[in-house]
Nucleic acid binder design. Sequence first.
RNA 1: GCCGAAGUGGUGGAAUUGGUAGACACGAUGGAUUCAAAAUCCAUUGCUCACAAGGCGUGCGGGUUCGAUUCCCGCCUUCGGUACCA
Length: 1011
Amino acid sequence: MDYDFQQIEKKWQEYWAKNETFKAENDSDKPKFYTLSMFPYPSGAGLHVGHPLGYIAGDIYARYKKHKGFNVLHPMGYDSFGLPAEQYAIQTGQHPAITTETNINRYREQLDRLGFSFDWSREVRTSNPSYYKWTQWIFIQLFNSWYNKETDKAEAIESLISIFEKEGNTKVNAACDDDVNEFSAKDWKGFSNKERQQVLLKYRLTYLADAEVNWCPALGTVLANDEIVNGVSERGGHPVIRKKMTQWMMRITAYAQRLLDGLDTIDWPQPLKDSQTNWIGRSEGAEVEFRVQSSEFRISVFTTRPDTIFGVSFMTLAPEHELVAKITTAEQKAEVDAYIEATAKRSERDRMADVKTISGTFTGSYAEHPFTKEPVPIWIGDYVLAGYGTGAVMSVPCGDQRDYDFAKHFGIDIPNIFESVDISEEAFADKGNTVIANSDFLNGLPYKKAVKRAIYELEQLGQGQGKINYRLRDAVFSRQRYWGEPFPVYYDVDGMPQMIADEHLPIELPEVEKYLPTETGEPPLGNATDWAWDSEQCSVVSNQLIDNKTVFQLELNTMPGWAGSSQYFNRYMDPKNDEAIYSREAINYWEDVDLYIGGSEHATGHLLYARFWQKFLFDKGIAPKDEFAKKLINQGMITGESAFIRVINRGYYKYPDNISSDEMEERDRIFDSLFNDMLQKRIVSWDLIKSKKLYDAVNGELYNLKEVFNSDYVKEVFENRGFDVDKITFTAWKRHVPVDYVNLKNEIIEAEFTNWYEDDIYSSDLFRTEGKFKVGREVEKMSKSKYNVVNPDAICDDYGADSLRLYEMFLGPLEQSKPWNTAGITGVHSFLKKLWRLYHTGPNNAFHVTDTPPSERSGEAFKTLHKTIKKVEEDIENFSFNTSVSTFMICVNELTAQKCKSKAILEPLAILVSPYAPHIAEELWEKLGHTTSISEAPFPKFDASHLVESSKEYPISFNGKMRFTMELPLDLGKDEIEAAVMAHEKTQAQLQGRTPKKVIVVPGKIVNIVG
RNA sequence: GCCGAAGUGGUGGAAUUGGUAGACACGAUGGAUUCAAAAUCCAUUGCUCACAAGGCGUGCGGGUUCGAUUCCCGCCUUCGGUACCA
């Protein structure tokens, strides 16, 4: 009987589904184990072979833990809100819910084919109202909380109100906005309701604020920092500008220190912890106050180097700093205004591209040095960021390179306060290796002592104190998109946000006619006709009923992508609960994730936000653990190799003779922009060239470059510039270009190409140019747009899911990224066939396993088996799945050579293999006479007695080089071994009569003779 | 610039605490079987030398050690993250 993987895999997938083999119960006598893989965004492209890598690893671990007697929770779901479905809706008018549903069904089909042990009864989808009901609920919890720095936890907003009523806010130590004014209990009582709400908003853990945000005009939305790559949007590559907007914010900064401290308590990869640490960016230093001369204004600065305070020769404010307008003198006003306008115009991208240019201007005002009382000129400059620290710095040119460059550029003094340090060329930023000089009471002190002393003196003066600053910013929580969670918020008669009561949740996403922002620039929900809240009926009603008495406007923004993914791991514990986010019993049983597997790209996004929410839920007593995942593993990326052609040079344009110079200029402009779009971009993939047979492998020629210019990418570029692509005829003069594909390495090829455009305006050659291409290969992320995607379905058709699972593991260490190469899959596939044959040694390859274990070689077989048990168990515990696949191969090769047919060996072997290749294991298990799933079987117990050896083949080395081996009994002592080795003829041959200086004998390991 | 990861045959990779470098596969070469192909099986396969003996070999240069892919010092390269953070 042959190994019919198609039939076997289908059979067992149906069996698992029908019998709910992997359904987890919320109570059990067994110990719990919660394994989680990051849930996917169901994209239209479907799964590629890179996606399942982490799922397979998680599945192996989950199945292994089940064999080991754990009650395993291994759920899966979908992060189903997101931009692509919305973009598709904008283009086609198709509702994102439909697109999403279609994509999820496709994902599910693909996932099912891989034989995962997911408990699908617990599936969640972030876009389901029954799920986002609880996302909205958490939002309300955050709104109704403030962060008490005294108790170092979130508390109910009521406790803050009662403090305000008793003593005002002067003694409150809370995480809050910078601009809260002090008020007394009496003041509070005198506030109007609106004023009170405004004050409270500055303390809530989610709040409205006018924030400077990354606005992407092309997408019509705000983007988070991690959604921007090199100054353009991650999706689509559109430019991003800075803009002030009223936005919902999350006060994650309240948790900065706890997010940092928590990292010590969890077993996550160090690189990931490092990047979170850097992202949070704690720095210790001091806040120093400078008085502005002849005014009441004071400028606060944050510095990590209070020890260098006597080196201050100017101050710099960010152009956006609120004091700029107030302190600028009349003479300097025009210059300052011009500078502010110029910097505001520069996009984020320009600023980043151009960090070298030093710019700034003098305000005309002076501050007073806290100690020397000398005047310090106040400048503004865009190297100071409004968003970090206080948006102002004390500039110490001798100790900071940026200040140094600025001072040099504008001819400002550079006083030296370092003992015996030359600062004529550059600033001295080294904290050690010198002592402070020319600094009054700091003279002669090294860095650390000087910092302490400076802070002490500032405190005495009442002009500063030690301070810890974080780079982490509060997170913008509003998106101007349709396909996201709606906020459970309406705006009352005062325009203040009001939460909708829990019992009316979820507030479901309304239908809209179009998914773009409205003409007046409101978010897409502004298009909804029924998007008002009737506060008496407690229901969503038509906008026409808005009277701002009982019926109010609902929030038009939606929540960002990370909202839904910040709570899903807990919701899996009790996903169908409609009364609560999850039951007490469920969360007290499962507690937290024991093993979380996912990509490292989420380091500063999802994984930070989810930790923040978890800590909040912990403070509120909603979750029992303040970290949601004990252990985390980053699976590497499976990359694809793609060869492609880039345009590297556009050459020069040639036009037909009969066009005017005006027209020529106009064309130049258009073509320049066209080529700028294409330059350095890959215009066609090699796979496409091959599939279109544009490459002649025999002669090593690339031909018909015309087709190269017919690529979708080029068409898209032309289309984006307003050309009608159907009217363009792409041609190329040079039709045959030699290219050595095999040794292809960034080769430059030259070709002249022409494009012909037919319409009323350009009824002639559009242009002709001699351009250069570069042909090269790169290993990179698999993506549809790169034409390097390998689909798992095709692999399942040809080799089966078990082969795919084994192969993905066999490729290399889980955490390492590695290129996909389908060629090697035959190796694991033939292993499975060999495994199958081991159980099918009867006539006509019929199933044949004997009950009689002791044959003459059974000792060998037991040794092989137990060697394998030991190694596989260790490998799984260490997440070294690639080496267990090798171990299985060795095991099967050995058992085949031993002609092992014994049930006593082959039965445990099936269990060992089952986490990796569950389908074949189930089939063999059934053939062995079992009527229940192999997943119920206990993992074979390792018995060391089978591995006891009586002798060892000792490597005999000379000066560290192994020369030959020698079989010796293991119970031999050091001296006996040495004697035996010295007596060996090969030893004598090696020594050639010389007496060895030394003989190292490590019993059981090695012998080394030093000569 | 800063932070992090990694450099081992033609390829993916193994060597878990310093002890036989290259396990296990892929590919390649030769052979068996077959009318033929697929499949399967056997042999060889780090480099070098005609073979053998030998020599050289884990990015490069040093060091520690009887012994280093592994530990230490100094470089180089590639990839990922981050970037005027005061």
